[in-house]
Design a protein around this nucleic acid. Structure first.
Lengths: 223, 223
DNA sequence: GCCAAGGCTATACGAGCGTATAGTGCATTA
DNA sequence: TAATGCACTATACGCTCGTATAGCCTTGGC
């Protein structure tokens, strides 16, 4: 905590910032209030004094981070600098921490993060139907898969970073990842003809197979 | 637990199966040994008797599930039925639970799951370089992103399912998702020309921007 | 028929958690 | 100067967790 700006912050802000960093790194459950207060350099009681409870602290962090992301994206939209999402971390380097936080929030079941996910799906759906209607007939599923994959990859950041040999939550690693992502978006991986036959086979399967769910019949896993 | 096959299993198998289901659903940390033993219909002491500790139980589950997936995939490779990964759950419906388990294991930091991830990246890398070398110049990053996105989407299953209105860990929902995925793989979303300019801009950024990491300077997030 | 062995239960211990509360010191204000 | 209020600490309560241990019941070999 050698950062001089850190000590200038009010204790409340220090607690919040420490919580954001730890929640992003270890998740809500994996972070204790004692961890947070120790990182902020205060006593556990002060967290309760300022935020009331761990859950209330988490909500405050959610609101703070998500509002910040929305504001930054709005600014970029106004300035029309939104060339590609991959550039964002270069313009606002500290946004990488916010990305990390939101990813954990999605996994931890934050309602605010879930609402942001839904918004992104709807926005993507509209973008597809307007700018690339030929890629699919199921706009909704396509958009949900797209947003799910993009945010999900960040959830797998440990493994992707290990495979790449560079942390994708650094600007350098993020750019290498964004580069591969751009390739991925601009070149078809499979023969379009294969896609047609695959979809046909799937609709055939969907008609014949009875619906089953994962995690509802533990006995069937045995033997 | 109305399944008659469930009661026929040995207590050890019941504990393991209950653990697999609960670990997949709530994660390791989110599951207590009392949860597992209650779901298995035994006393907490028996878990310790058979597995020694919670961590050892988890390792046993990892080994069991991952071996099972490898075996099934090998069978399908031998029979040459591997038309598309999306079909797998139709042939082996209970594999959806295994998918769910592996996804959680990746998020929870299981070494075995991480090793499987790495194998998939290497296999994908080889596949790309042989079958679709034109899609990218950075095979490794492309493969890592591809595997990360695919597994990551499953990590976001709650949100994807909510956006779709159907659980993607049911055969029905999984097929709809696989359909969108097929569209995604077989049609380019962006103009290839855009991809070129984007990559150029990125390499320019990479050269000028100093590397920064998320979660290392909490003070910078304040104000 | 007996008796060791192991599957299995009941109960408890110590640690770490979120939370609660009493109290201290330092401001600001009348 | 006295009083009021707030930031902050110290300490502890109650709970749940993983783990440990002592003992019971059933089974199979002699």
């Amino acid at each position: 905590m050698g950062d001089p700006a850190f000590e200038d912050l009010t204790a409340r802000a220090r607690i919040r910032d420490a919580a954001i960093r730890l929640f992003a790194e270890r998740g809500i459950e994996g972070t204790t209030v004692r961890d947070v207060t120790q990182a902020a350099g205060v006593s556990p009681g002060l967290l309760r004094h300022h935020f009331g409870s761990k859950e209330a602290l988490r909500e405050a962090c959610d609101r703070y981070v998500l509002d910040r992301i929305v504001k930054i994206k709005e600014e970029l939209l106004l300035e029309d600098k939104m060339a590609s999402p991959g550039f964002l971390p270069s313009v606002h380097p500290t946004i990488l921490l916010s990305y990390k936080y939101v990813t954990r929030a999605l996994l931890d079941g934050s309602p605010r993060a879930a609402a942001m996910f839904d918004d992104m799906v709807t926005l993507t759906e509209q973008w597809i139907s307007k700018n690339a209607p030929e890629v699919t007939e199921d706009y909704r599923a396509y958009a949900a898969v797209l947003v799910g994959m993009q945010s999900g990859m960040l959830a797998m950041h440990d493994h992707v970073s290990r495979a790449l040999g560079v942390d994708i939550f650094t600007t350098d690693g993020h750019l290498r990842m964004a580069g591969a992502l751009t390739d991925f978006y601009s070149h078809p991986l499979l023969d379009p003809e294969f896609g047609v036959t695959a979809r046909e086979a799937m609709t055939r399967l969907r008609a014949t197979n009875p619906p089953t769910a994962a995690g509802t019949d533990p006995g069937a896993e045995g033997a």
